[in-house]
Design a protein around this nucleic acid. Structure first.
Lengths: 175, 175
DNA sequence: GCCCTGCCTGTTACAGTGTAACGCTCGGCG
DNA sequence: CGCCGAGCGTTACACTGTAACAGGCAGGGC
């Protein structure tokens, strides 16, 4: 695998000032650059619609439904249908640029450089709706072990934890 | 047509005996008994609709959508609406008698005695559609550790692995 | 008994999510 | 030029889920 060399700059979390405030323009540019590189390398088309879809998702900082994305992409006189967004999202998820949150029917930008096959853990806050993506080799290992014991050959993995993020815990306790 | 005593002749996978061939009448009776005990203990109502919903899900051996359940519960002249099924499913999931498979929008019977708060791992086979529910203390531990590091307070956990089950691997290799 | 109340269920209506099918455009290629 | 494949627009439709309201039924107080 190729992914191993990138040092994870975002410091999963000592306190709560962690990854999920790292959206916005910078994260967007990052992702778009990654997409362009990837498209070039693999001979894929990173079209305007796919780019704009990725940008919308990346800017948001919380999971967006396909219809929400379609709405944001639409301008008076030029409406983008949800079905087009779904196709763009298919492309983006397939190449690990965005992730689908199954428990919310919504999409978030990928916060790591890992490929589509890698497994991530999504921490979904019930209070603020933010989603934090973390990776744990330990979890992957124990998962792999369990799968091996069951004789199960995994293709994709979904790990989503709902609860309350650190920031919201502090907020609800302190008032 | 819906005789609860019918023997399950369809034998998803003859050999490889792990949990997921433990559906059918026996599993159903188990679950119903558990539900009755639970209702008695907590002063809840295990109504006919809830019971029949549980039975349908337990008999099936693969994830069932709410509308499929509604269809199975309906008889000519007496149609059960999906919305009623959803309410029954709310009750059943809330008390850990069935689980919702988020990635499929479908429901499976609980194959363990654990409560609703426990975390299970679902192995979903792409070939035969069966779902195997396993529990791993090791996975839970590593998950807990990751959550603690992130300062995240979990409320519910979703772990769903899609892939190919042991039986189907054998089948596709051997022909 | 009667009413009140709470829970469950039936029913309708509707919002949200996702896909199938068809046709068009555009760019590359013989 | 015509062919072809990929992407996209459009329509139509299926599936998933919830809100709101009405009726039924059991238990409790009078």
């Amino acid at each position: 695998m190729e992914a191993g060399k990138r040092m994870d700059e975002h410091e999963t979390c000592g306190h709560h000032g962690h990854a999920h405030d790292a959206h916005g323009p910078a994260r967007t540019a990052d992702l778009v650059a990654r997409a362009e590189r990837l498209a070039q390398d693999l001979g894929l088309q990173f079209t305007a619609l796919r780019r704009r879809t990725l940008e919308v998702v990346a800017e948001e900082g919380r999971p967006l439904g396909a219809y929400d994305i379609a709405e944001r992409l639409s301008v008076p006189g030029k409406r983008v249908a949800a079905v087009s967004v779904y196709r763009a999202l298919d492309f983006l998820t397939e190449h690990g640029l965005v992730h689908r949150i199954a428990s919310r029917n919504a999409f978030v930008p990928c916060e790591h450089g890992h490929g589509a096959g890698e497994s991530a853990v999504f921490l979904i806050c019930r209070s603020c709706g933010s989603v934090d993506e973390t990776i744990s080799a330990e979890i992957e290992r124990s998962l792999d072990r369990t799968l091996a014991e069951a004789g199960f050959k995994p293709a994709s993995r979904i790990v989503e934890i709902e609860g309350e993020c650190g920031a919201c815990q502090g907020r609800s306790e302190a008032g």
